[in-house]
């Protein structure tokens, strides 16, 4: 009964607002999703038909562009580099940042404030591209896989997020463990880490997306093709349209049943392949992303 009454109360204005709102949201969703969809259908279409326009579904379905990428580029290797750096980076970053965050919550620590600020300031004080470049070079990290691993171990922003979270854990839990004779590392591993799971998950998501998307280190400091990441492969692929087109001329000599390729199709397929890992895990991890923003609203 009550329900009926309240539905009746919904005024005309409110209903109109609902409709307008629904339209606005649908447009927003469309603007955000259609570009991805367009690239997917285009890259799955026969290039000759696609160049005349595809809108909703692939025309002349073919996965030849994807096959071509697998066979003719370094994609497999780049994928391995990107995936491995993402995994190693994330794990080390989580360990380093959480251990340091827990350390600076210890009130007994001598020079605690100074040490914490010493780390946090780096968030605001960037040296710039060239100083970064010559520093990394002077450490001989250029053209080395370690370039992808070492700089990401401690991140000031993640330290703030984790520290804020740890401070909300009841101190009594830690104290009683201490009474039972557990040392610093034992408390960290057995109590702090398990209880910080939500924020650890959030930071893990940020760190892994960041690692997957990073390319500057690769571009500036690691020219060796052995160290090429998926992002840089995509960058090169987009920028070498002409070279690509030339190298594909052989492919264009049509063997019976073979489909021609175009530079456009290749580029779009590569873009999709580079973004696919993020798109696949994103819907499942979205709540952790959001949690980080809420936490980030709390200042360091």
């Amino acid at each position: 009964m009550r329900r009926n009454k309240s539905t009746m109360k919904v005024s005309r204005q409110e209903r109109a607002l609902q409709v307008v709102n629904f339209i606005c949201m649908t447009v927003a969703v469309f603007l955000c999703m259609y570009p991805f969809w367009y690239l997917i259908i285009y890259s799955l279409s026969d290039p000759a038909q696609a160049s005349r326009g595809v809108w909703l579904l692939p025309k002349g379905f073919t996965i030849y562009a994807y096959q071509w990428i697998m066979e003719n580029t370094n994609f497999g290797h780049a994928f391995l580099i990107s995936t491995s750096r993402t995994l190693i980076n994330t794990v080390l970053c989580l360990l380093g940042s959480s251990l340091f965050a827990y350390l600076v919550t210890q009130r007994d620590m001598i020079a605690r404030k100074f040490i914490y600020r010493f780390v946090i300031i780096t968030m605001y004080l960037g040296a710039g591209l060239v100083p970064y470049y010559i520093t990394m070079k002077s450490y001989h990290l250029n053209n080395s896989y370690l370039l992808y691993i070492i700089p990401g171990i401690l991140n000031a922003y993640y330290v703030i997020l984790i520290k804020t979270f740890i401070e909300q854990i009841p101190a009594s839990l830690e104290e009683s463990a201490r009474m039972d004779g557990a040392g610093f590392f034992k408390v960290y591993a057995r109590i702090i880490l398990p209880l910080s799971k939500p924020i650890i998950a959030t930071v893990a998501v940020y760190a892994s997306v960041g690692a997957w998307n990073s390319w500057q280190d690769n571009y500036l400091l690691a020219q060796s093709p052995k160290l090429q990441t998926v992002q840089l492969l995509l960058y090169n692929c987009i920028n070498q349209a002409q070279v690509l087109a030339d190298s594909m001329k052989q492919g264009l000599v049509q063997a019976p049943g073979a489909v021609a390729l175009s530079a456009e199709t290749i580029k779009m397929a590569t873009t999709i392949v580079a973004v696919l890992p993020v798109m696949m895990v994103y819907p499942f991890l979205q709540k952790y992303f959001v949690k980080g923003v809420m936490m980030g609203a709390v200042k360091g």
Binding site: P35, F36, L39, V209, W212, N213, S214, W215, Q231, L232, L234, Y235, I238, K267, M268, T270, T271, A274, V275, V278, Y282, F289
Partner: peptide, 10 residues
Amino acid sequence: FISWITVYGI
């Protein structure tokens, strides 16, 4: 959450 390289591709 997609890189600017990907945005450029799109």
